[in-house]
Each structure stands twice: as structure tokens, then as C-alpha cells.
């Protein structure tokens, strides 16, 4: 898999420096290809550098981040945008969701946890590829889609590399490598991601209690579940449910 190209947009040099030097881009198969300090510069750099991911502050000079996203969406529909904002105001968040940004994170940014955000991004890129390619061309592609489908169907159960190895008659190390090479994330990050997706779906579409959601998403202990969820989504499960149900027009989320 090619390295993902990253553009950093923030008007504060320290924030850009922090992102550049405090997050291990190398370990996440990413590469910072450029920086921009205002909206116009960001637009120009998106055109010339063609980044895969844009890390974007909303409150930037000349043109705000949301406007930049709106404009560059037209030309570069496949670019992923991650909004980083100090305004933990849900109205911003809603507008950002309407622009189909990939993720929304709040300042202060915890660089250790930012890895989860990149992992999620890779997984959604992978899922995009799978859904686009109706006919998988390569053998490996079929294996990984088979494994991910199996995981989707069995995520409520106790699952590990060795369980997968038995199921698919493959070496656990090989499966581990497959995840790394095909999706770009390790097995556990992938499993956590799909479990969180399932949990979010259950939180918004059912009235199951938090403990029941935890169980159906593969967590026997709701305390562990709440911790993992908070770490991945920034809010607790009950807060997540509330935020979305409260938002006007947000209730129709699948």
C-alpha cells in the first residue's frame, strides 16, 4: 500500500509543528507533504499536492475551514478531511457532518489517540475500495474481504487471530500481515473499529441499554466498553446517543 499523503492546515505554527513532530506518521504509513496557514493557501495546496488526508482547523484566516472543504470537495471528491477544532459546539459538528468529512476531533489533540483517527480513516478507505470493486481481482483481496465479512458477522463473539486462523486455515502471522498490507491497520484496531461502528449503530437505532449494546458489540464488561468507546469517540456511549438524538434532523441517522 502506498503511503498516505497528508496536508496540515492551521494558522498556528505550533499546532502544525505539534502534528508534524509529535505524531508518528511513519508508523501509520503516512507522510506530511505540506502545510497551509490560511484558507486560500489550503485550497491551492490541495490542488497542487493532491493529499489523501487534510487535517483542517475551522477557524483560519481569509476563508474558514468548512468553506475550504466545501469548495475542494467538488474538485477532489476522494480527499478525506479531518476537522480539528477548539469549538466544541455541536452546530459546527453538524455542519461538518453535512460536508461528509471523515472525522471530527477536538482540541486539545492527544497525539497518542490521533492514531485511532488515522486507523479509522484507513478502514473507511478500505471499505470504499471493497464496495467499488464489485469483482475482486486478486486472491489476497478475496481473502481479506472474506475475513472482514466473517468479522462483521461474528463481532459479538470472542474473536482473535487464532480463531480466524482456524476458521480460514491460515497462519495467524499471515493474517496479521494481511491486515497491515491490505488495510494498513493491525487486526485489533480493525476489530475495535467495526465493534465501535456496530455500537454506534445500535446506540442510535435501538433503545437497548448501554450494557446490552456492549454485549452485542463484543464487550462482556460494559465498563471496558465505555472506556474503549470514550477513547475512540471522545464521548461516552450515553452522551453519544443523546447528542445525536437531540440534534434537529439528526434523529434519522441509520
Amino acid at each position: 500500500m502506498n503511503k498516505l499523503r497528508v496536508l496540515l492546515v492551521d494558522d498556528e505554527i505550533m499546532i502544525r509543528e505539534g502534528f508534524k513532530r509529535l505524531f508518528d506518521w511513519e508508523a501509520h504509513d503516512c507522510e506530511v507533504v505540506g502545510e497551509a496557514a490560511d484558507g486560500m493557501e489550503a485550497l491551492a495546496k490541495i490542488d497542487t499536492l493532491r493529499p489523501d488526508i487534510v487535517i483542517m482547523d475551522i477557524n483560519i484566516p481569509i476563508m474558514n475551514g468548512l468553506k475550504v472543504i466545501q469548495l475542494s470537495r467538488l474538485k477532489h471528491p476522494n480527499t478525506a478531511f479531518v476537522i480539528v477544532s477548539g469549538y466544541d459546539d455541536f452546530s459546527y459538528c453538524r455542519e461538518a457532518l453535512r460536508l461528509q468529512i471523515t472525522d471530527y476531533i477536538l482540541k486539545p489533540v492527544n497525539y497518542e489517540e490521533f492514531g485511532t483517527c488515522i486507523d479509522n480513516l484507513k478502514i473507511s478507505l478500505f471499505e470504499q475500495r471493497v464496495s467499488v470493486a464489485a469483482e475482486p481481482e486478486k486472491q489476497e483481496e478475496r481473502t481479506i474481504t472474506g475475513i472482514t465479512r466473517y468479522l462483521q458477522e461474528h463481532l459479538a463473539e470472542e474473536i482473535s487471530l487464532s480463531v480466524l486462523a482456524e476458521q480460514f486455515h491460515l497462519n495467524p502471522q499471515y493474517i496479521s500481515q494481511l491486515f497491515k498490507s491490505e488495510i494498513g491497520v493491525n487486526f485489533l484496531a480493525y476489530l475495535t473499529n467495526i465493534r465501535m461502528e456496530k455500537a454506534k449503530k445500535l446506540l442510535l437505532s435501538t433503545s437497548l441499554s448501554i450494557a446490552e449494546v456492549a454485549e452485542q458489540s463484543g464487550y462482556g464488561d460494559y465498563r471496558v466498553f465505555t472506556k474503549v468507546f470514550k477513547k475512540s469517540e471522545g464521548v461516552t456511549p450515553s452522551q453519544y446517543r443523546r447528542d445525536f438524538l437531540e440534534a434537529p434532523g439528526g434523529a434519522g441517522h441509520p
Binding site: 505550533m14 499546532i15 505539534g18 509529535l22 469549538y87 482540541k107 486539545p108 497525539y111
Partner: peptide, 16 residues
């Protein structure tokens, strides 16, 4: 916003 944006900048400097 000034307060916590500034604190955050100092935090990043500390981490750097």
C-alpha cells in the same frame, strides 16, 4: 478560547 488555546500551545511546546 484565548485561555485554553494559549495553554494548548504551551502544552505542544512542552511535548516538543
Amino acid at each position: 478560547h484565548f485561555l485554553y488555546n494559549t495553554l494548548d500551545t504551551i502544552r505542544i511546546q512542552a511535548q516538543l
